[in-house]
Write a protein that binds this DNA or RNA. Structure first.
Lengths: 335, 335
DNA sequence: CTGTTAGCGCGTTCAG
DNA sequence: CTGAACGCGCTAACAG
């Protein structure tokens, strides 16, 4: 393996000059720079980033911690992150929790040892502790950015949509179609994001004069199966709703199948609305009316913020809200 | 940051002993080991793996190069890889090509610089050259394992199913249901895996006495949209087939929607069969009959092989075939 | 079994 | 503007 020494010898300069010629070209005479670059070219030298990292304490990699990679909601976000990372010379270390927070631990340690420059969390699980009293992260940890989710107890830079408002608008739309008995299939209990969507749902219902909603709210965990299960619970609970709003598309699709199996036609008998606009939403029968999240942009911006923080250009605790969009397809009908 | 020196001082031994006590406990007296471990505990020391890597030339990370992370076929494979990696102290660097081989380059360089110990390719794109005459990879490159796909020109350790046979059995099954005019929606042209499936399709058709199939074969690229497009082409091509076999579930689901839009009922008018058994396959209307690939196991085994190679325990060019399985749902009917 | 020595490959003082 | 020297933190080789 050709090292900086070889280049130095070849160019007839010192290793320091080679290092400078590559990292800070201005600080080197044009002539010597040229010599160095020629030697680099000739020898096929590439700087060993391990050694560089050891020195600079930057290794240009960021952990991306995902609750569950098989959840197709996350894939576009990951793609957005990866694209920006790659464009900026960063790499992503993918950590999959398989929905079990314990699996996050190794990645927390990775961060602790500064094997990664930063951490982007797509779920609400943060693999290291924070200082409750000071309401801040221990500066011993590398920068953290949260995509989609967030932590209510402490300000952390993040990117997301206005979940409460999005849910509000979705349910309002159902209301405009004449629906009043609108069931809601919520996501994981502890999730702040889900609480927000529930809040939005409740507010919209209240606007329509429906103050009691507890009998209309069912819980899932964002999986297809849990959506199906919630639909079963919902159908067995007594008086049918005229519309069902699910906290994500996967659960909506799960519910859709159960409705079909029970002979309930969507949207004729029951209207159905999802959230996220994953690819399959457009390919359901009927195609799913939903709320689009700009997933790729969420990922891209998260990584951009991370890069800015690492470059020292950014205030450490900005939250950016990206626009969502109602997507009208065929799963909602007027009553 | 507390380093090995601090621990050595604290324990009253040399740094070498600390290193050994942690890495090769047997080679150190029980008593000194105890002292060292106590000092480690007390100081909160964690070994700096960057420095270790610089020394050992192993950084315990493996690049996983994916054609397109948003293709949900890959997610379970990634999960399998990550799980085994994590269990063995490895990390995965996720590279997403967004279906463009050019995007693989940075990851090739990563490997060239030995910033990663190995490379697992989920597609057919290998980001570095191989020696054509010697039919082998340049030993300058780190170990390579291919999951699902492979390269016909050169033997590379890999994990996959018997694609030709799986397609053969799938089409045979359609034949058993009385189908003869069976259309095939194939995947990307250059893909060896797809060629194998096409081969299997042709063989099954030949068995049934159908020797001319070119008018029945349509091309897609594994996306939902391309499946829809292929279905349109197929419907516009003249005499309708009685069954359609798609090289993956996404294309089958794409096709399904077009059939529906044109008023063609599945399976009553046309039977439909997919490949992969992604999660959504079970949630289509009708639920999709398909060929299950053990995706998680493919991923897990790929990573296991990589680990074995890195440990020097494995012959460098074994190909492992995992079992597939026909999954009978409701999208195929007897004629 | 343990300590000493010598780097891994690089970036960064500090002189010149 | 350039070079010599040092050290990042660790492990491998060699003595003892």
């Amino acid at each position: 393996m050709v090292s900086i020494k070889d280049v130095a010898r070849l160019a007839g300069v010192s290793t320091a000059t080679v290092s400078r010629a590559l990292a800070e070209p201005d600080k080197v005479q044009a002539k010597t720079r040229k010599k160095v670059l020629a030697a680099v070219e000739q020898s096929g030298y590439v700087t060993n980033s391990l050694a560089r990292s050891l020195r600079t304490r930057r290794n240009h990699s960021v952990v991306v911690l995902v609750p569950d990679v098989t959840n197709s909601f996350f894939s576009s976000i990951i793609q957005g992150i990866e694209e920006v990372a790659r464009a900026n010379g960063y790499r992503i270390l993918l950590g999959d929790m398989q929905n079990d927070p314990d699996n996050a631990r190794p990645y927390g340690e990775l961060c602790a040892q500064r094997q990664a420059d930063g951490l982007i969390c797509l779920g609400r699980t943060i693999p290291f502790a924070y200082n409750k009293s000071r309401k801040s992260l221990d500066p011993a940890w590398p920068p953290l950015v949260m995509a989609c989710e967030y932590d209510e107890r402490i300000p952390i830079p993040g990117v997301r949509i206005d979940n409460a408002r999005a849910a509000l608008e979705a349910v309002r739309y159902l209301g405009e179609q004449g629906h009043r008995r609108i069931a809601y299939i919520n996501g994981p209990q502890g999730s702040p994001l889900c609480r927000d969507r529930l809040k939005g749902y409740r507010k919209a219902m209240a606007e329509m004069g429906v103050r009691k909603t507890s009998h209309l709210v069912f819980n899932g965990d964002f999986t297809l199966d849990s959506g199906a299960q919630a639909a079963r619970a919902l159908l067995d609970a007594g008086k049918l709703p005229t519309a069902v709003f699910a906290a994500n598309d996967a659960m909506a699709i799960g519910a859709l199948q159960v409705l079909r199996q029970r002979g309930i036609r969507v949207p004729r008998d029951i209207s159905l609305m999802g959230f996220d606009d994953i690819k399959f939403a457009a390919y359901c029968d009927p195609p799913l009316t939903t709320v689009r999240q700009p997933r790729r942009e969420i990922g891209a911006l998260s990584m951009q913020i991370m890069i800015d923080i690492l470059a020292g250009n950014s205030i450490a605790s900005t939250t950016r809200e990206l626009p969502y969009e109602l997507v009208f397809r065929e799963s909602v009908a007027q009553i």
